[in-house]
Design a binder for these strands. Structure first.
Length: 940
RNA sequence: GCGGGUGUGGUGAAAUUGGUAGACACGCUGGAUUUAGGAUCCAGUGCCGCGAGGCGUGUGGGUUCGAGUCCCUCCACCCGCACCA
């Protein structure tokens, strides 16, 4: 066979394995480079052609960097905890570990045949107890830490305790979950009426151990609290905000409702500002950075306290970004769940308010978001607030457009300047005080900040831009408000009512959670993977003897969410077998940040935010030396499937060809793409595909073919459009598939999969084999001097490939190599001095074939270690050339170029005639810089 | 609505700092060859036109000797987020 890719690829893959060609160790004499793929969840379906796209790109880059002499860390592993294996367990009783093991084996097999240069000795799996032991350890560290907002850094809780014992809280500003004293049960406050909310050393020391543990819980970075969570009844678990889309679960699309539950929560909100600020130093796409900023949702404004008529001991606290419009407040709105609603509501309104609250509570998250149209609804409480500046009575309403989860769950409504407030005022006929000079806000809302205020006391005549800081100062002076920055980012719920996840290293004494640090808690076996009859998570089914550790009254039954293990895996690769630490500090100092992180943009919020959070936390504790995980990220686009469709005449088993589909009432059915070639259906194959089509009849087109329709959509089993890499590797080989996936188009762009072009790439590799071997298999390599044309082709290729890889343009590299091989073929090149460097340039894309070429050239060892060749400008020069130059589309003249100069960047005297000078509008250029066949620049 | 991005042949796309637009490949057309194949090789292929020639990078304008590239206008499409006070 001319190009026996199967034999070549098998041979070299075995060779790499035997020589451990891709094993790397720390080496202080070499500069490091860390190339990382987002590790996959090993699903039962195996890889489709979309998966390897990013892996191939990172593999090419890792190999390139290695040729350049970097010590490249390029590992792979599996995000192996997760829902599908658990759901399979619920259906079949098979332990998720067994399912996962089988899926991992399948993934590994598929990855191996593509010839990646992963150092598999560093493989990690999040579900491996030796791995999740350290996920649990990081959780324990978070539990044992608090956030010092004054120092803007996480610190050990022991430091806080010491401080409380000796000085009290003092001026320390711990990020906390509400007011610390609310942690204590009613009637157990160790203080008297002089208590003003200050946590003094005396108070702290007067608390018993239980009270102290309740107080500390308010400050821990991993804390236990009752909170409103996204509950998905169908999945039987809570979900993080980023796992919910449009009120439906991201996985499975099940409805999500809000529910109050006691949960472990991560205090990511304490890191909000740093998570925003540090985006600036990252080389990520603007859209991902912007998505992160959106998600964190910083807004500047003021917190304002409104008094309540008849309830002097309470105030309604609101957050507003427009304190300048405070004189335009004509009503207030509380979220239906707001804690003061019951107290404010009058007897007459009680029934209506309760009815409204009940209706709001019953709405699912999806209904509440209104799916587009936001219908206004609300209910008057009968109560009134007091304007902090004017002392006027302001009616208090409840409405579900005010969200309990954002800000304080209450707003001051300024209908003149806020669209929602304006709409609400119109619907319920509330007054709209005019506060903008010359603007009739009765007709339309005015949200711009460029018109002077009026009827606004001391802000009259000032534009909002100027008035906002004044308003904050004024409110602070009056003691009714403060400037404040608010974030949309909520603390992240960390408990899942699931089996297949990391168990918490936690047990309970009564209600007090206690950490287990001396022993690892591993997942106990259970008899079923469903919640108990009492609604406890599956782990509650485990009997006492099933746990490897039991302490206190009971163990924690929740498990950690999927993002726990994936938030720090990039660190474990650096030191994967360490039994004493999550990662040795010397090793993390050596490997450092991930230099290139390659993965889909769909993980742009959740995963990245959580990883950044954990990295910053570990940095604060001085466990690692950097506070951002991924210095540069590349997001590959999704590869879409191209589905094929047939058209069945309704009520019959007759199928009409694509051209005639509109002449009948037809039903469109997806057909397996393996039965279709160039849009033409294999009729016999189709009949044999499914029993119901066995007696199908066909209406063919003029060419006597059945032509299928097609559609570009996501690859999915149900659409029969999944292209599997195994078949392509079988038919064309891994090198062809690698090159083809890269040549498909720019990496970041989403694109439909189309196998038609693969022949072109395959042909290029076949042509390449002819450079070193003839049809009989005899090696043609000679030691002779290559022709100038051959050398030029080589150096052109090196230059282009190097430059394109440096600017991360993977697709154009393949074209450059094709051109190079075409030119070498034309030049009849078989010389070692050309083909050996060529093999190094090819190695990142077609590593197997490059090894063959390297070997044929008599190269030592493996091409993997070959130094990257340098291109020589002199070799690019053609011996003597006269370049015809077309100028301004009209005038032609000649440029003589010195024989020794490289035309790409040489300055050349123009032999300009008068006509040319005229064209230049009177300017006579002194010099023109030319490239081969074109003017680069005119000087003078 | 807000934010990010993209518009170039029949198709995927090149064109790195403004300098021969469409490289490279798919597809298509024609030819060669052949123990008919989803093989290989050669030639052609942006559009209009027999031709000379003209027109061409979503639209309209601008800067420039020169614009796919820079600036402004509008249009179309894609992707995020979305009652966030």
């Amino acid at each position: 066979m001319e190009y026996d890719f199967r034999a070549i690829e098998q041979r070299w893959q075995a060779n790499w394995k035997a020589t451990e060609a891709y094993k790397v160790t720390e080496d202080a004499s070499k500069e490091k480079f860390y190339v990382l793929d987002m590790f996959p969840y090993p699903s039962g379906a195996g890889l489709h052609v979309g998966h390897p796209l990013g892996y191939i790109a990172s593999d090419v880059f890792a190999r390139y960097k290695r040729h350049q002499g970097f010590n490249v860390l390029h590992p792979m592993g599996y995000d192996s905890f997760g829902l599908p294996a658990e759901q399979y367990a619920i259906q079949t009783g098979q332990h998720p570990a067994v399912t996962t093991e089988a899926n991992v084996a399948r993934y590994r097999e598929q990855l191996d045949q593509l010839g990646f240069c992963y150092d598999w000795s560093r493989e990690v799996r999040t579900s491996d107890p030796a791995y999740y032991r350290w996920t649990q350890w990081i959780f324990a560290e978070l539990f044992e830490s608090w956030y010092d907002a004054a120092a803007d850094c996480a610190k050990p809780i022991s430091a806080l305790v010491e401080m409380l014992q000796s000085d009290g809280l003092g001026t320390a500003e711990p990020a906390c979950d509400g007011d610390w004293w609310k942690a204590l049960p009613e009637g157990e406050y160790p203080w008297d009426e002089t208590f003003d909310g200050t946590l003094t050393a005396d108070l702290w020391n007067a608390c018993d151990a239980v009270a102290q543990s309740h107080i500390l819980m308010q400050f821990r970075l991993a804390y236990l609290a009752d909170s409103e969570v996204n509950w998905c009844p169908a999945l039987g678990t809570v979900l993080a905000n980023d796992e919910v889309k449009d009120g439906l679960s991201e996985r499975g699309g099940h409805p999500v409702v809000r529910k109050r539950m006691r949960q472990w929560i991560m205090r990511i909100s304490a890191f909000s500002q740093r998570l925003i600020d540090d985006l600036n130093g990252l080389d990520w796409t603007d859209s991902i950075k912007e998505a992160q900023r959106n998600w964190i949702g910083r807004s500047e404004g003021a917190s304002v306290h409104f008094g309540i008529e008849g309830l002097p001991e309470h105030t309604i606290e609101v957050f507003t970004t427009r304190p300048d419009t405070i004189y335009g407040v004509s009503f207030m709105v509380l979220a239906p769940e707001h804690e003061l609603v019951a107290a404010i509501t009058t007897a007459e309104q009680k029934q209506a308010v309760t009815a409204y609250q009940t209706a709001a509570a019953q709405k699912s998250e999806r209904e509440r978001q209104g799916a587009g149209d936001h219908e206004v609804s609300g209910c008057f409480t009968g109560g009134y607030a007091v304007h902090p500046l004017t002392g006027k009575k302001i009616p208090v309403w409840i409405a579900d457009y005010v969200l309990a989860g954002y800000g304080t769950g209450a707003i001051m409504a300024v209908p003149a300047g806020d669209e929602r407030d304006w709409k609400f005022a119109k619907v319920y006929d509330l007054t709209i005080p005019a506060i903008f000079e010359g603007v009739d806000t009765d007709e339309a809302v005015y949200t711009e900040k460029d018109i002077a205020l009026c009827s606004s006391g001391e802000f009259n005549g000032k534009t909002p831009v100027d008035a906002i800081p004044l308003a904050i100062a004024h409110l602070e002076e009056k003691g009714v408000g403060t400037g404040q920055i608010n974030y949309r980012l909520r603390d992240a719920v960390f408990s899942r009512q699931r089996y297949w996840g990391e168990p918490f290293p936690i047990y309970y004494d009564g209600e007090i959670p206690q950490l287990i640090r001396d022993e690892q808690v591993t997942l106990p076996p259970v008899d079923a993977y469903l919640p108990t009859e009492d609604g406890d998570p599956p782990l509650a089914r485990a009997k006492k003897e099933d746990w490897n550790v039991t302490r206190g009254d009971r163990m924690e039954y929740n498990t950690m969410p999927g993002w726990a293990g994936s938030s720090w895996y990039f660190l474990r690769y650096m030191d994967p077998h360490n039994a004493d630490a999550f990662c040795d500090r010397a090793k993390s100092d050596y490997w450092g940040q991930v230099d290139r992180y390659v993965g889909g943009a769909e993980h742009g919020t959740g995963h990245l935010l959580y990883s950044r959070f954990w990295t910053k936390f570990l940095f604060d504790l001085d466990l690692i030396g950097f506070d951002e995980p991924f210095a540069k990220m590349i997001n590959q686009g999704m590869i879409l499937g191209r589905s094929s469709c047939v058209y069945r005449i309704e009520g019959t088993n007759r199928f009409v060809t694509f051209e005639q589909r509109k002449e009948h009432r037809t039903q469109r059915l997806h057909v397996d793409i393996s039965l279709v070639r160039n849009d033409v259906l294999d009729l016999e194959g189709f009949k044999a595909w499914r029993p119901e089509f066995a007696d199908a009849e066909f209406v063919l087109n003029e060419a006597g073919e059945y032509r299928c329709g097609n559609e570009v959509e996501k690859m999915s089993k149900s659409k029969f459009n999944v292209e599997n890499p195994d078949d392509l590797v079988e038919r064309y080989g891994a090198d062809t598939l690698r090159c083809y996936e890269m040549v498909l188009g720019p990496l970041e762009q989403a694109k439909p999969w189309d196998t038609q072009g693969i022949n072109g790439v395959h042909g290029f590799l076949r042509k390449l084999t002819r450079l070193y071997r003839n049809a009989d298999g005899n090696v043609l390599i000679t030691n002779g001097a290559p022709s100038a044309e051959a050398e030029r082709a080589l150096h052109k290729t090196i230059k282009k490939v190097t430059e394109d890889l440096d600017r991360l343009s993977w697709n154009t590299v393949v074209s450059a190599m094709m051109i190079g091989v075409n030119e070498l073929t034309e030049a009849g090149c078989h010389e070692r001095s050309v083909l050996q460097p060529l093999s190094a340039v090819l190695a990142p894309y077609a590593p197997h074939l490059a090894e063959e070429l390297w070997e044929a050239c008599g190269g030592e060892g493996s091409v993997v270690d070959a130094p990257w060749p340098k291109w020589d400008a002199e070799k690019l020069v053609e011996s003597e050339v006269t370049y015809p130059v077309q100028f301004n589309g009209k005038v032609r003249f000649q440029l003589a170029v010195a024989a020794t100069a490289a035309p790409a960047d040489v300055e050349v005297a123009v032999l300009a005639d008068e006509r040319t000078a005229k064209q230049l509008d009177g300017r006579t250029p002194k010099k023109v810089i030319v490239g081969p066949g074109r003017i680069i620049n005119i000087v003078g």
